[in-house]
Design a protein around this nucleic acid. Structure first.
Lengths: 222, 222, 222, 222
DNA sequence: AATGAATGAGCGTTCATTCAT
DNA sequence: TATGAATGAACGCTCATTCAT
């Protein structure tokens, strides 16, 4: 994995006035790269890693098959870069919020809302599903996700949850011991919607909110 | 099915009264089938459907490549039969228990225990992971699982949870409205263990028990 | 080719009163053999040599696949035996007729009638087509047919045609030089009916008779 | 198409004025296609459709196996294209000749000559044999040939033959009723040469000319 | 003799990757 | 840089043949 440098952050600041030639080239490079990544996401999501044909990715991205190899080492690199590109920015934003200042209810509401609007309603949902489905076969991918997301978010979360218990905001330590419990309904939503939406669509926000009720010990609607 | 290899070898000598030839033949047929299914589970779990080579399945099962086709229509059939063979018996046993007679705490404890010992500690864990990972690409598979498991188990569960609310065993209706919440930590355990066990193993029983504490509103260990 | 002895003629005389055991066995053998040959003819005709599956031959013959190998060396032997069994008796009967005694018109009428009723209206038609289609790939088959049929029939025919010219029954020597001309419409009928009967059925007897008209120099119906 | 190899090598250098890249590419494409078709003809002729290995076709054409699939959908398409490419130009040229202007003798002489030089002396002979041999198993092929050749040539021929009878050029209506009679010796020649040339080569032109003698009622050499 | 399960070589087809242009 | 034709290893599946029963 890795190797390829994070061109993302950079590019965002680029180009305001007339860019220098090299910059313009970099721009085109960036756009092409984006187009390929977007096409790859679509195809990998629809068919999984092994069943995706680079031919189709190229066609969807509007480039020639060989062009993909100018931007990515091989099929696997493309896949990993794809996940990386979608995951990194998200992970950063989560770990940044000033959780300690807010009441736990607000914290949890924010997390729910972030998941619903930033992940579930976007292409990131597909990336998450790809991680779930393909991760076991891509140790590097799982490791990357663990390092970038889990290892960064869970400690912060756990600390805040512990604090909540100490402050009396939460009445049990279960969550602090197993932050996975907090994420479980989100994972369930990703899995369920990928499998059973045809038969029984799931109200994802409803599910997560109901979960909060349980966690916070409020009766909610019976 | 249950726990692979021993069963087979044993059965060969099991029958004491010299069985009729046809019986013996049927026995061998059954054993071969089982061997292929076992090998297939192993390979499909390790590589996913698309990346699994029937050559490898055959080698692992100790049969020739062509033999697989004496027992299964094609690769996809083998995959579906595999899931079917592992899932059907389980689904039946779950729906059967006399849930109404037991206190909700017992019901939930049983479910946790069943998941941990009947699924998570066995090869069924791998089958569940396969359903999660491959289901989106196998509509038939997802439908089968929905029909055989979800549609059979969830209504029973929901009814019992409603009853629990009415009886005052549960203090909120969230679970009755979203039985998915009950299953969420199990799904999380399957996903987590497939991805992150190398970095941070998960105490699955602990996770599920902690979840019960939360659901039942008991403080548990802080 | 060859190797297997011609059991045919023998069997025909067999069994009148209660046959001895060994004879009965031979009978069953013969029937089985016939059944396989009949099934093989059907399948080879429908699909050609290469595309025919011994599985299908066995199923059609009502025997197990392995049984075929008790009666025939391999697929190719079966094919060759099949042709041999159908061709040999025919070739004999043709060469036998007392052609010199009859007027040429009668001779040719007889040949036409023999072809129409003994070949074209029977399974032999399929054998002839098989020889035409597969012969180029089966040198032994072509050689066998040349030796058994062509080399036996053509000289006789040629002699009679020469005689006809000398007797003034025929007005040109073309036929005597090229007895193939006599057979050409029959071959054409076999080929045409195999290819174009769906679009334009051919009146085979009409074709052959018209050919005779031309050969004999009679005006026929204009 | 026409007579294979030389054409290709020559063409490469042929173009004097430095052709545009696309032209050169198209040229190479055309050459490759031709090379594959030529190799396919060779292999299909030698072994028949079913027994031909695409591996061998590729090797003979000097391309990789996968390359065939850049030019042809699949094995069957390759086969059909092969026949189509060889048959279509011929059929056109036949139907075009101004038959009514020429005496029937000339017409028939021309047909004989055309068959001998344009078909029998070329690779087209092999294509005709393939049609005869494989047509029964390829309904599409037979239909194509009927539509493109038979349905185009026979009516013209029949009309000219009728005219010949009316003009008194022919003394019997047999040919007009059965134009197949005219083609029969050609079919015979194709079949005979495929089967028996080793044992008894056939003077094809002699055969066809002898046939004409008979048709035209001239004594010819006795 | 008869069976049919088992074998494994073989073939059509696909597709990631390369490379000449 | 970009292309897309070409490659060839790989894989699913078939089927003639064998052989234990």
């Amino acid at each position: 994995m890795v190797e390829r440098t994070p061109k993302f952050a950079v590019r965002k600041k680029a180009a305001s006035t007339r860019p220098a030639p090299s910059e313009r080239v970099d721009d085109r490079r960036g756009e092409r790269r984006e187009a390929i990544l977007a096409a790859a996401l679509e195809e990998f999501s629809a068919r999984g890693f092994a069943a995706t044909r680079l031919d189709d990715v190229a066609a969807r991205a509007g480039v020639a098959k060989g062009t993909i190899y100018l931007y990515f080492e091989d099929k696997e690199s493309l896949f990993q870069e794809l996940v990386r590109a979608m995951v990194v920015p998200l992970a950063g934003s989560i770990a940044a919020a000033p959780l300690r200042e807010m009441p736990i209810r607000t914290v949890l509401d924010m997390i729910v809302e972030a998941f619903v609007t930033q992940i579930f309603a976007t292409r990131r949902k597909d990336v998450m599903r790809l991680i779930i489905a393909e991760g076991p076969r891509f140790p590097k991918l799982a490791e990357f996700y663990y390092r970038e997301v889990i290892a960064r978010v869970f400690p912060v979360l756990r600390a805040r949850l512990k604090l909540a218990v100490e402050r009396g905001e939460l009445h049990h330590g279960a969550l602090a011991r197993f932050p996975q419990l907090l994420a479980a309904p989100a994972v369930m939503a990703l899995v369920w919607s990928g499998l059973f939406d045809r038969f029984e669509p799931l109200d994802v926000r409803g599910l997560l909110r109901a979960h909060l009720e349980v966690l916070l010990g409020q009766g909610g609607e019976r």
